[in-house]
Design a protein around this nucleic acid. Structure first.
Lengths: 211, 211
DNA sequence: TTCGCAATCGACAGTATGTCGAAAAAGTCG
DNA sequence: CGACTTTTTCGACATACTGTCGATTGCGAA
C-alpha cells in the first residue's frame, strides 16, 4: 500500500518533523495567506534546512493537502440531519451551517488558499471537486425528494440548484471575516432558494400557505 | 493630471506598443489562465525585450488593471432597468444577467484571474470592491424599496442580502464554462432570494398569491 | 560491528521578477 | 542641418523562490 504522496516511507523518527511542518503551516496560516508562506519558513519552523523539507513533502501544496485531509471529515459534520431530512427544516440547516462557519472561522486562510490554488493543482482540484460533489449529490437528492412529495416548488434542475447553493456558501464564507455572523441569513436564503416561491413566479406555485 | 499608473507619460510612439501589450494579454488570456502568463510572453508578443515591458507597465497585474478598466463600464451595462425597477421583474433581471453572462463568457479568464489575485494586490482589490459596492448599493436600495412597499418579505438586512446575491453571481459565473446556460436559473434563484417565501417561513408571509 | 535505510544538508540549476544605467531612436527648435 | 531634450530600448545585475542531486551522517537491527 502506498503512503501519502511525498513522504517516502518508514515509521516514526522523522514523523515528529512531519508533524512540526504541519504545525508550522497551521500557525503561519493563522497569520497570513498561503501565498505569502514560503518553504523556507515552513522548514525553519520545523528546524530543518529548506532542502530537508522536500524529504517530507513534495511542495507547499502537498502540505496543504495533508492539512486538508485532517479537516475534510469535519467539513460535512453535522450536515446529516439537514441533508437526510425533509422540507424547510430551518433548525437542522442552521446546525449544518453553524458547524461549517466555525470551520471557516478557524481555518479560513487554509480553505481560502486551497480553493484559490485548486485550479492548476490537480490534487487540490480533486479534493475540492470531491467535496463539492458529495454535498451537491446529497442536496440534489433532497431537493428531488421534496419536489416529488410536493414540498418544494419546481425550479432549476436539482443538481444545478444544489451547485449554486454550494457556490454561495463558499463565496460567502470565503469573503467575510466573521462567518458565524452570516449563518442566520444563509439559512433564510438557502431555504428560499429551495422552497421560496412568490405570486409572480413564472413557474410553480405556493405549495403551503401560512395558516 | 496623472495618467494610468505605470506608464510614465508622453504622446504616441510607444503607445502602439502599449496597445500591443494589452492585445497580447487579451490573446493569451483567451488560451490560458493569468497565472500561467509570464512577462516574457507579454513582451515577446509586443516585440520588445522583457525589460522594455517595464517601461509601459509596472507589473503583470498592472496590465490586468488596464484591461479591466476597458470593460468595467460594460459590467453594469443593462442592469439599470432591473436595479431601478420594482418587484419581481424577471425580464429585466434576465436582461441584466444575460449581459453579464456574455461578459463572463468572453472575459472569463481575465475576470477569474482578477478576482483571484485581488487579495494581495491593492489596485485589484480596490477595483473589485468598488464594483461590488456599486452593485450592492443599488440592489440593497431596491430591496429596501420593495420591502417598504410590501412587495418583498422581510429577511436579511438589504445590504447583506445584496452582498450574498453578488457573491453568488460571481461564484457561479467563475465556476462554469458556459455562463449563459446559468442565466435562467440565476433569475429564478435571485428572485427567490429576494421575494421567495414559503409556508414554513419563520418570518414574513406570502405577499401575493397566485390567482 | 557492520549493513542498510532514514534523515540531513550544501551546492546547483532553473525560472521569474524587478532595477539600473548606458545608449540608441525620435522629436524639437534655432 | 546640427545641438539638445525626451522617449524608448536593452543588456547586465541583483533577488527571491523552487526543486534536484549527490554526499554524508545518524541510527536501528541482524
Amino acid at each position: 500500500m502506498s503512503t501519502l504522496p511525498g513522504r517516502r516511507r518508514g515509521p516514526s523518527k522523522g514523523d515528529r518533523r512531519e508533524q512540526a511542518i504541519l504545525e508550522t503551516a497551521r500557525a503561519l496560516l493563522a497569520r497570513k495567506p498561503l501565498a505569502d508562506i514560503t518553504i523556507d519558513e515552513l522548514a525553519a519552523g520545523a528546524e530543518i534546512s529548506r532542502s530537508s523539507f522536500y524529504f517530507y513533502f513534495d511542495s507547499k501544496l502537498a502540505v496543504v493537502v495533508a492539512l486538508l485531509h485532517g479537516i475534510t471529515g469535519e467539513l460535512g459534520r453535522d450536515a446529516g440531519p439537514w441533508l437526510d431530512g425533509d422540507g424547510p427544516d430551518a433548525e437542522s440547516l442552521r446546525a449544518a451551517l453553524s458547524a461549517l462557519a466555525v470551520l471557516w472561522r478557524d481555518q479560513g486562510r487554509l480553505l481560502t488558499g486551497a480553493f484559490a490554488a485548486a485550479p492548476g493543482c490537480p490534487p487540490l482540484a480533486q479534493w475540492r471537486d470531491g467535496l463539492r460533489a458529495a454535498h451537491v449529490d446529497r442536496l440534489a437528492a433532497r431537493i428531488e425528494r421534496d419536489r416529488a412529495a410536493g414540498r418544494a416548488p419546481a425550479g432549476p434542475a436539482p443538481r444545478v440548484l444544489a451547485g449554486l447553493i454550494d457556490d454561495l456558501r463558499t463565496a460567502a464564507f470565503a469573503g467575510t471575516a466573521d462567518p458565524e455572523a452570516l449563518v442566520d441569513d444563509l439559512v433564510t436564503v438557502e431555504l428560499r432558494m429551495i422552497y421560496g416561491d412568490f405570486g409572480g413566479s413564472p413557474l410553480g406555485r405556493v405549495i403551503r400557505q401560512a395558516p
